[in-house]
Nucleic acid binder design. Structure first.
Length: 445
RNA sequence: GUGGAUGUAGCUCAGUUGGUUAGAGCGCCGGAUUGUGGUUCCGGAGGUCGCCGGUUCAAGCCCGGUCUUCCACCCCA
């Protein structure tokens, strides 16, 4: 019974220092979302199970955390053969709940509807580094517009966020239509998923294993041979484009995809800090992406997996009864961004606490005087606190040191008599007498 | 979901072929310094060796199970 307390697999506590850093990430992303005109949305942690199932593929369904029925309902379900023990489930991502929300509230929304959502999601995956069972997604989506300007805007949004976070990244771009075109050219358009999930692994396992995997999945040697030009692509987008146009000439869908990509590359223009790259092997989220596909990887640090994803999905709301609504969105993986920023030392140094001034406590009379000063300082917009107990100076200074508080105000018997404050700069160690009414101005300088 | 590693003080890790009171560094607490932290010196506290069971005269060490973390696959933020 007296076992050490613990938390479930793949979940984490976030201590104060960690939270200050996490909030820095969330705040940065949120600020940029708002700057780009996205509106906030929150949806419940739980959805009806049927809202979620079937939206993420077979693999996805397996990873949905189901919520057990309770009481008499559970009894009945168990007697019924235990087939439907759950009617609800924790959200798996933010996109499907968003689609559900849009359908439910379609008459109240102004389209194109741009929303952002920053909430945790849950997946019953086996945890690994950078992979958790509970983690935060920061999504921005536009629904009700087919314009490629949205894709352009999202690329610029990625760029802006990582510029502000000071992290070098590569934004990878592809288009589902190009992938469909490749399958079409191969002569086995019915094998798109198998072909595409195989070439998605190219940079990881190499050409030979990719071809082997396709063969295993039933792609003919002839089709594999027709895909070969993919491996011969050279250069960046500008050089790759003519090669792709030639190779995929007979596929109208591929040509459309290439045209769309060209528009995005051109309109996005020169990015501020991120690198925008075409990656024909990028194939995530096949279960609903239909146009653009995005992925962001850190250009620094050792985390190889992606830190953001996204793409366009035509008709995501269709399954909920609203047809013809195209949407495009992106998702920031805050937890992975945290890991990368920590590893690369990109967090601002002054994130340890918000307090700028600590009043030392010398006893009741002094403390009561400090209480007035604390109030005045706070009202002037400076975060300040009064040490609550009359403790040794060493303890109080150590407290300031631990919390990285830059200034300590000393108000003892002497100061009290003279109506002054001894202000110590914790970094330099210097201290000087300051009149009570000059305290705010001195800290500000 | 498949396969494989890992777990010793708050943290990072030692711990010999199984053998008496399980160690170090850092951190923490106290003192040198009753109005001064971050440096120095001295002292101290802190562990049912992840958990449960088994083998043995004897288990941190061997065996089984379980949980955690991590790695590969799968998939993905």
């Amino acid at each position: 019974m007296a076992n050490k307390p613990s938390i479930p697999k793949g979940t984490r506590d976030f201590g104060p220092q960690e939270m200050l850093r996490r909030k820095y990430i969330f705040n940065t992303i949120e600020k940029v979302f708002q700057q780009y005109g996205y509106l906030p949305l929150e949806t419940p942690a739980m959805e009806h199970l049927e809202t979620l199932t079937g939206k993420y593929g077979e693999e996805g369904d397996r990873l949905i955390f189901k919520v057990l029925k309770r009481g008499a309902e559970l009894e009945r379900a168990m007697q019924d053969g235990g087939k439907s023990l759950a009617a609800e489930a924790l959200r798996y991502d933010l996109t499907v709940p968003f689609a559900r929300y849009v359908v439910q509230h379609q008459n109240e929304l102004a389209f194109p509807f741009k929303r952002y959502q920053i909430q945790p999601v849950w997946r019953a995956d086996r945890p690994q580094k950078g992979r958790y069972r509970e983690f935060y997604q920061c999504d921005a989506d536009v629904i009700g517009s087919t314009s490629l300007l949205n894709e352009v805007e999202l690329v610029q949004l990625f760029d802006e966020v990582f510029l502000q976070l000071g992290l070098g990244v590569v934004i990878k771009l592809n288009d589902r239509k190009v992938l469909s075109g490749i399958a079409e050219i191969s002569g086995q358009p019915d094998k798109v998923v198998d072909i595409v999930t195989a070439i998605d692994k190219l940079d990881k396992i190499g050409r030979e294993k990719v071809e082997e995997e396709m063969r295993v999945k039933g792609v003919s040697d002839e089709a594999i041979a027709r895909i070969a030009p993919l491996f011969a692509l050279k250069g960046a987008w500008k050089e790759q484009r003519p090669q792709l146009e030639q190779w995929l000439a007979s596929s109208t869908i591929a040509q459309q995809g290439l045209k769309d990509l060209a528009f995005v590359f051109e309109a996005a223009g020169q990015l501020k800090s991120a690198v925008l790259e075409f990656d024909p092997t990028l194939a995530r989220g096949l279960d609903y992406y239909t146009g653009a596909i995005f992925e962001v990887k850190a250009a620094e640090g050792t985390l190889q997996s992606s830190i953001c994803g996204g793409g366009r999905y035509d008709d995501l709301t269709g399954v909920f009864g609203l047809k013809g609504m195209s949407g495009v969105g992106i998702s920031f993986g805050a937890d992975r961004i945290y890991d990368v920023l920590l590893e690369t030392g990109k967090f601002p140094a002054e994130l340890r606490s918000s307090t700028r001034l600590l009043f030392a406590n010398f006893g009741e009379a002094e403390a009561l005087q400090c209480l007035k000063l604390v109030r005045a300082v706070r009202e002037a917009g400076i975060a300040a606190e009064l040490y609550p107990d009359k403790a040794k100076m060493a303890r109080q200074f150590k407290y300031a040191d631990d919390k990285d508080i830059p200034f300590v105000a000393i108000v003892g018997e002497n100061e009290l008599k003279q109506g002054i404050v001894t202000l110590k700069d914790m970094k330099s160690g210097e201290q000087r007498a300051v009149k009570e009414d000059e305290l705010v101005a001195t800290i500000r300088s």
